[in-house]
Write a protein that binds this DNA or RNA. Structure first.
Lengths: 202, 202
DNA sequence: GTCATCTTTGACATACTTGTCAAGGATAAT
DNA sequence: ATTATCCTTGACAAGTATGTCAAAGATGAC
């Protein structure tokens, strides 16, 4: 009979929550390929051997870190869309995305977009969780757009617009890498929002 | 006195044009980091030592390959925008971009977008040429949009719309990596075009 | 034909990364 | 206190990539 980990005797010393937070940060800064287990060991303070023991390899560790990141991010996104004015809701969402991409002390890229470009095709398991992540993003935006249509605040197609917005946010993450310029990223999403068929709230 | 390379005695054996074409292909498929000099040597048929002799290192070889790619690509883009109907012109452009991303026998990514995500921040020289490339793309689109405005075919701002479109094409390249689905990419650019303030030709 | 000069080739040293393992350490359960 | 079990630690082996170099090869200029 299998015993739950919590009741086992040789207990893990490190704080997994912290480790995954740091892993997300390292992967965001260095990218998936360039990040080594040694990097992760040094930055988390956990021995490389312990990481191998706990996660088997970089792929698995990445997947754990990714799911950690995803949960936080999608919850955040959903929260940003709460505004009852649809255009304001999406403005706030995109503004938050841009802020997150730029606010860090060090220059770092978008965790998911970097992973997509480096690992999606190479590792089926990673591609799957990336697909799920973008699908999740799309659903959240689609739902908000459907609400906006009901509220007569939006005059487009919810599904295709959500897909379009997912792509646009990825594009903004790419732009960040090249220009490293928040105002340019803001300009991009403002232009997009301006063109979208939002209606004034009556 | 410096003698031009063409008149020198120990002449290069390999066809640089071909090598750079292949290099672009390899970098597109494997990404910048994952591509090794050995990969390039094997796929081009040129000895690794010869590549080091000719290009010093991977960065330099990449820069050469990139400029090779850029010249072709920007010329192509400009050509696609020739249609006198602005909306049709941009439709054709985006369609070509999508076709290029999907048409290859093997699954490969967008050369420039992969490089942006992997190398932009790490290598100033590579970042510079990537910046120039996106700037070039932007200018070409901006010029066409200004023409469209003169022709009363477009009712937006040329500069910011061009920037927006550059970001959008990057986003489409990211989507390609995850979903590998041409119809999704098409859906994205069609949605974008539909929302842009084009006017019917009178 | 000879020479000067560059290219090609294969070998080499170095460095880095991965993944594994055995020995020792820590602790919940009894 | 003992035990069973897992974790930690440092060392090790194997694989991979880089960059350099000397010797050999090729060719335009003379």
């Amino acid at each position: 009979m299998k015993i739950s980990r919590e009741s086992m005797v040789g207990t893990r010393k490190f704080n997994e929550e912290k480790v995954l937070d740091i892993a997300v940060d390292v992967f965001s800064r260095k990218g998936f390929i360039a990040t080594t287990m040694l990097d992760l060991a040094e930055e988390t303070g956990v021995q490389r051997g312990s990481l191998y023991n706990a996660y088997k390899n970089k792929n698995v560790l990445f997947l754990k870190a990714f799911s950690h990141y995803t949960n936080n991010f999608l919850t955040l996104i959903e929260g940003e869309l709460q505004n009852s004015d649809a255009k304001k809701a999406f403005t706030q969402l995109l503004n938050t995305v841009v802020e997150r991409l730029c606010s860090d002390k060090e220059v770092r890229g978008c965790f998911s977009t970097r992973a997509i470009m480096e690992a999606a095709q190479k590792c089926p398991d990673i591609q799957l969780c990336l697909t799920r992540f973008l699908d999740g993003l799309e659903v959240i935006m689609k739902n908000r757009l459907e609400q906006a249509i009901k509220d007569k605040q939006f005059g487009g197609n919810a599904q295709s617009t959500a897909r379009y917005l997912v792509a646009l946010t990825r594009g903004i993450a790419v732009i960040e890498r090249v220009y490293n310029d928040k105002s340019r990223m803001t300009e991009v999403y403002q232009t997009a929002l301006e063109y979208m068929p939002f209606n004034k709230v009556t």
